[in-house]
Amino acid sequence: DKPVLAIQVLGTVKWFNVRNGYGFINRNDTKEDVFVHQTAIKRNNPRKFLRSVGDGETVEFDVVEGEKGAEATNVTGPGGVPVKGSRYAPNR
Score class of each variant (00 low, 15 high):
residue 59 V to D: 02
residue 61 F to W: 03
residue 59 V to K: 01
residue 11 G to V: 02
residue 36 V to F: 09
residue 1 D to G: 13
residue 49 F to W: 14
residue 88 Y to W: 13
residue 55 D to V: 13
residue 59 V to R: 00
residue 67 E to Y: 14
residue 54 G to T: 07
residue 48 K to S: 08
residue 54 G to Y: 06
residue 53 V to H: 04
residue 80 G to L: 03
residue 56 G to A: 05
residue 60 E to Q: 15
residue 22 Y to F: 09
residue 64 V to S: 05
residue 31 K to R: 10
residue 81 V to D: 10
residue 83 V to K: 02
residue 54 G to F: 03
residue 60 E to H: 05
residue 50 L to G: 12
residue 51 R to E: 05
residue 84 K to F: 08
residue 53 V to L: 15
residue 58 T to V: 15
residue 57 E to S: 01
residue 60 E to P: 00
residue 66 G to Y: 01
residue 77 G to Q: 04
residue 46 P to N: 09
residue 78 P to K: 07
residue 46 P to R: 09
residue 60 E to W: 07
residue 55 D to R: 14
residue 81 V to G: 13
residue 91 N to W: 13
residue 82 P to F: 08
residue 89 A to G: 07
residue 72 A to V: 02
residue 20 N to I: 10
residue 89 A to F: 05
residue 47 R to T: 13
residue 87 R to I: 14
residue 48 K to H: 14
residue 71 E to Y: 15
residue 24 F to S: 14
residue 50 L to I: 15
residue 72 A to L: 01
residue 87 R to D: 14
residue 82 P to A: 12
residue 33 D to V: 10
residue 71 E to Q: 14
residue 55 D to P: 13
residue 66 G to V: 03
residue 4 V to G: 04
residue 78 P to I: 08
residue 60 E to C: 14
residue 48 K to R: 07
residue 13 V to D: 11
residue 85 G to N: 02
residue 68 K to R: 13
residue 69 G to Q: 02
residue 63 V to E: 03
residue 83 V to A: 03
residue 82 P to I: 02
residue 84 K to C: 10
residue 64 V to Y: 05
residue 81 V to H: 11
residue 1 D to N: 15
residue 51 R to M: 07
residue 39 T to N: 09
residue 81 V to C: 13
residue 70 A to F: 13
residue 87 R to P: 14
residue 26 N to D: 07
residue 87 R to Y: 10
residue 84 K to A: 09
residue 68 K to T: 05
residue 89 A to E: 07
residue 12 T to S: 07
residue 74 N to R: 08
residue 33 D to E: 12
residue 71 E to T: 09
residue 66 G to C: 08
residue 36 V to L: 10
residue 76 T to E: 04
residue 50 L to R: 12
residue 82 P to Y: 09
residue 53 V to M: 07
residue 57 E to H: 03
residue 87 R to E: 12
residue 7 I to T: 15
residue 23 G to V: 12
residue 65 E to S: 14
residue 51 R to W: 04
residue 70 A to V: 12
residue 68 K to V: 07
residue 79 G to V: 05
residue 77 G to M: 04
residue 62 D to E: 04
residue 55 D to K: 15
residue 84 K to Q: 13
residue 52 S to G: 05
residue 48 K to D: 05
residue 89 A to N: 06
residue 84 K to I: 13
residue 45 N to L: 02
residue 48 K to G: 06
residue 63 V to K: 01
residue 49 F to L: 15
residue 47 R to H: 14
residue 54 G to H: 08
residue 45 N to A: 08
residue 57 E to Q: 04
residue 44 N to I: 08
residue 9 V to F: 07
residue 85 G to Q: 04
residue 82 P to W: 07
residue 49 F to H: 13
residue 87 R to F: 10
residue 90 P to M: 10
residue 92 R to V: 13
residue 91 N to C: 13
residue 44 N to T: 10
residue 73 T to F: 14
residue 83 V to E: 03
residue 75 V to K: 00
residue 65 E to W: 13
residue 46 P to I: 06
residue 77 G to I: 06
residue 5 L to W: 04
residue 75 V to M: 01
residue 71 E to M: 15
residue 49 F to C: 14
residue 22 Y to S: 11
residue 81 V to S: 12
residue 60 E to S: 09
residue 78 P to Y: 04
residue 35 F to S: 06
residue 61 F to H: 02
residue 59 V to E: 01
residue 79 G to P: 00
residue 48 K to T: 05
residue 77 G to Y: 07
residue 41 I to T: 12
residue 61 F to I: 04
residue 62 D to M: 05
residue 85 G to D: 03
residue 81 V to N: 12
residue 92 R to A: 10
residue 65 E to K: 15
residue 75 V to R: 00
residue 69 G to W: 04
residue 4 V to D: 07
residue 53 V to Y: 04
residue 7 I to S: 15
residue 70 A to M: 15
residue 77 G to A: 06
residue 71 E to V: 13
residue 75 V to A: 02
residue 44 N to G: 09
residue 67 E to I: 14
residue 74 N to A: 07
residue 84 K to H: 11
residue 67 E to H: 13
residue 61 F to P: 01
residue 79 G to N: 14
residue 58 T to K: 10
residue 22 Y to N: 15
residue 81 V to K: 15
residue 60 E to M: 15
residue 57 E to V: 01
residue 51 R to N: 11
residue 83 V to W: 02
residue 56 G to Y: 04
residue 39 T to A: 08
residue 14 K to N: 11
residue 44 N to L: 06
residue 80 G to M: 02
residue 89 A to W: 05
residue 88 Y to E: 07
residue 82 P to S: 10
residue 21 G to D: 12
residue 64 V to E: 04
residue 67 E to L: 15
residue 82 P to C: 12
residue 65 E to D: 13
residue 61 F to T: 01
residue 49 F to Q: 14
residue 53 V to C: 09
residue 72 A to K: 01
residue 45 N to K: 04
residue 69 G to L: 06
residue 51 R to S: 11
residue 11 G to D: 05
residue 79 G to T: 06
residue 50 L to Q: 09
residue 75 V to G: 03
residue 65 E to L: 15
residue 66 G to F: 00
residue 51 R to P: 12
residue 45 N to I: 00
residue 49 F to P: 10
residue 70 A to G: 07
residue 74 N to S: 06
residue 7 I to N: 10
residue 47 R to L: 14
residue 73 T to I: 15
residue 43 R to Q: 14
residue 53 V to N: 01
residue 21 G to C: 12
residue 92 R to T: 13
residue 72 A to H: 00
